[in-house]
C-alpha cells in the first residue's frame, strides 16, 4: 500500500536532484577546489596541542576567507587517534577530508597493531615541528639537566616522570633518557599535556617532558623551570618569558650530556588516492595560512620549530621518522605483540 507513493515521491526527488545538479555544476576546470565543506580531522582530544593548532588554522581560514567552502574541525581521538587515521584510510577518493598528525601517526599503529600505516595516506605538508623540554618544579634545586639526572640516579628509581599517554612520544623520550643515563624513572601516563604540567606543579611527580606551549604559563607563573630542550640547536625565540630568560636561552639537552633529539610532527595528510591538483590546492591554502599574523603568533608562543616541507622532501622525512620510531619502540619493548 505505502510503497507506490514512496517511490513516487522519491522519483520526484530524483528528478529534482538531477535538475539541481545540472544547474549547480558550472564547470571551472582550471584547478581543483573543494565543492563541499572540508572535514579537518584531529586524531586527539579537545584542548591538546594538535587540537589548538587545527582550531587556530580553522579560525585563520575563516577570518581571512582562504577557502570558499567552510572548514569543519572534528576530533576523533579514540584508540590513541587510531579512530581518526582509520576514518581517513576508509575515505579513499574523498578529497574533502584532511587530517593533522602528531607522533601518534607512527606510535599508535606500532603499539596497538591496528591495520594502518602512514603510507595509506597522501602526504600534503609539514606545518611545523613541536619542541620538547625537560621540566622540573621551580622549588627544586636543580639548575641543569645534569644535576637533575645525577639526583635521579641517586634516588634509585623512585623519581617519577609524567607524560601524555602510554607508549607515545613522552614515554619514548623517557625511555631514551633512561637508556643513555642509566637513571630509572617511574613513568606515569596522563590524558593530556595540560594535566601533565599540573601534576608537576602539584609536586605529584618530579619532572615532565612537556611541549613549550603546555608549560609556558607555569614557567611565567614561577612554578616550573625548563632545564633543556631536546633539539640539535637552541630555539630561536628571544622574547623574555620568565626569570629574565627566553626560549632561546634554554640549552640543548645534548650540551648537558643527554644526547637525545626529538621533535614532533605537526603535519597534514589527505585521504588515499588524492590527485596532485587536490594536494596542491591544500598546500596553497596552508602557505597562505603561514603568512598570517595569527599563525606567526601561535608559532612564537609555542616556540615551534618552523620547518615547512611538501612533496618528496616531506615523504622522505616521514619515512625516516617512522623507521626511527620503530627502532626506538622496539628497543623499549613497546611494539604490539603479533
Amino acid at each position: 500500500m505505502t510503497r507506490p507513493i514512496h517511490t513516487l515521491s522519491f522519483g520526484a526527488a530524483f528528478a529534482l536532484g538531477t535538475a539541481l545538479a545540472l544547474t549547480s555544476a558550472v564547470p571551472t576546470q582550471a584547478a581543483w577546489e573543494p565543492t563541499r565543506p572540508v572535514e579537518f580531522i584531529i586524531p586527539a582530544g579537545p584542548g591538546g596541542g594538535a587540537d589548538i593548532m587545527a582550531r587556530t588554522i580553522q579560525g585563520i581560514v575563516t577570518k581571512h576567507n582562504l577557502m570558499k567552502q567552510p572548514m569543519v574541525v572534528i576530533n576523533k581521538a579514540g584508540g590513541a587517534g587510531g579512530e581518526g587515521f582509520l576514518d581517513i584510510k576508509a575515505s579513499a577518493g574523498n578529497p574533502h577530508k584532511i587530517i593533522i598528525t602528531l607522533s601518534n601517526l607512527f606510535t599508535t599503529p606500532l603499539a596497538t597493531g591496528i591495520p594502518f600505516n602512514w603510507k595509506d595516506l597522501t602526504p600534503v605538508a609539514m606545518l611545523a615541528l613541536d619542541e620538547f623540554c625537560l621540566w622540573v618544579h621551580a622549588e627544586t634545586p636543580y639548575k641543569s639537566a645534569k644535576e637533575y639526572i645525577d639526583a635521579a640516579k641517586k634516588a634509585n628509581g623512585t623519581f617519577k616522570m609524567a607524560g601524555t599517554g602510554s607508549k607515545q612520544e613522552d614515554q619514548i623520550i623517557t625511555e631514551a633518557i633512561q637508556k643513555i643515563t642509566g637513571a630509572k624513572f617511574i613513568y606515569i601516563p596522563e590524558r593530556g599535556g595540560g594535566a601533565v604540567a599540573v601534576q608537576l606543579v602539584g609536586k605529584h611527580v618530579d619532572s615532565t617532558v612537556n611541549n613549550p606551549n603546555e608549560a609556558i604559563s607555569q614557567w611565567k607563573g614561577g612554578t616550573l623551570r625548563p632545564l633543556c630542550v631536546f633539539d640539535s640547536k637552541q630555539m630561536p625565540y628571544k622574547e623574555v618569558i620568565a626569570e629574565g630568560k627566553s626560549w632561546g636561552d634554554i640549552p640543548t639537552c645534548k650540551s648537558q650530556g643527554l644526547d637525545i633529539e626529538y621533535l614532533m610532527l605537526r603535519g597534514i595528510f589527505m585521504t588515499p588516492g588524492a590527485t596532485k591538483d587536490q594536494v596542491d590546492y591544500y598546500i596553497g591554502v596552508f602557505k597562505k595560512v603561514r603568512e598570517t599574523e595569527e599563525w606567526k603568533k601561535l608559532m612564537a608562543d609555542g616556540a615551534f620549530n618552523q620547518t615547512f616541507m611538501t612533496g618528496a622532501d616531506y615523504t622522505k622525512w616521514v619515512a625516516t621518522e617512522e623507521k626511527r620510531h620503530e627502532e626506538l619502540m622496539r628497543a623499549a619493548g613497546f611494539l604490539a605483540k603479533q
Partner: peptide, 16 residues
C-alpha cells in the same frame, strides 16, 4: 552547526 551526518545517493544527486 556544520555537523556532517551520513548521506546517501539521494543527497549525492542533489549535490548537498
Amino acid at each position: 552547526f556544520l555537523v556532517p551526518l551520513p548521506k546517501g545517493p539521494i543527497e549525492e544527486l542533489l549535490g548537498l
